[in-house]
């Protein structure tokens, strides 16, 4: 479980996160939802330590991550897998080398073991015959899947996905959602997904945190969202006609 306690973050004079507290449950897909520019990505980046918080603390299964220095954070970081919005694959490496990268850095595996592991991870995300291609030679959906394969190569305890569906067609989005859900169950990870995709909300959302204007407005399970009584949340979730029909 990841506990976020009273974190605030400002960039210059602009306060992006204001005293946010929430919990991301183990073995579940936790969604951070909210409109663009409301602080979802900043919250995620603060949680994984890419941004330092101004105040508050973050605990990974009781370990106070925010007060640790770079060296102390290393063991926890090796338990984290992250899928970035654009994939963040290394351009100069092939797909296979991208997936093998964390194994090269942190394991003593032989080359054949690393290749087998990379192959297994790529198969897990339904990718075949792309091993020797470069990121520039594959589609956006494939890039996301390679990023997921890289994120799971070290058997992560925590999986973070920043807008995994952005820029993808509906079918590929569903595929990515299913992958995230299945991997969470299979690896028993604490998964945190940033999204404003309503399909992800209905398909994989188990625990949901709603961020608006840099503050947490609502937190609960998917089943509670229909009766939240929170005007801002309703306004966001039921903005589309499809969701309005679902409500009624």
């Amino acid at each position: 479980m990841i506990e976020v306690e009273g974190i605030s973050k400002s960039f210059g004079t602009k306060q992006v996160l204001d005293n946010i507290s929430c919990r991301f449950e183990s073995g579940q897909v936790n969604l951070i939802i909210g409109q663009s520019g409301m602080g979802k990505t900043v919250l995620m980046k603060c949680t994984v330590g890419l941004f330092e918080v101004d105040k508050g603390c973050i605990r990974f299964d009781g370990r106070d991550f925010s007060s640790m220095d770079f060296r102390q954070r290393k063991p926890i970081r090796q338990e984290i897998g992250m899928v970035f919005q654009g994939g963040a694959l290394f351009d100069s490496l092939t797909v296979e080398e991208n997936v093998m990268f964390p194994l090269n850095m942190f394991t003593g595996m032989s080359l054949s073991e690393k290749r087998d592991r990379a192959d297994a991870c790529l198969k897990r995300v339904n990718l075949k015959d792309v091993h020797q291609r470069y990121p520039s030679e594959i589609s956006g959906g494939m890039k996301k899947r390679v990023a997921i394969a890289r994120a799971i190569s070290m058997n992560p305890r925590y999986l973070f996905c920043d807008e995994p569906n952005s820029g993808l067609d509906p079918k590929t989005s569903i595929l990515i959602d299913e992958l995230i859900r299945d991997i969470t169950q299979e690896f028993k990870t604490t998964t945190v997904v940033n999204t404003h995709d309503m399909n992800s909300l209905t398909e994989i959302g188990q625990h949901i945190v709603f961020i608006h204007g840099g503050r947490k407005w609502w937190e609960g399970s998917y089943s509670d969202i229909l009766q939240s009584g929170n005007a801002e949340l309703d306004d966001f979730v039921f903005a589309t006609k499809v969701m309005q029909r679902l409500k009624h």
Partner: peptide, 12 residues
């Protein structure tokens, strides 16, 4: 393109 962030996340 967040490749440096990806390295940091891995603990590199």
């Amino acid at each position: 393109t967040e490749q440096i962030d990806a390295l940091e996340i891995m603990g590199i």
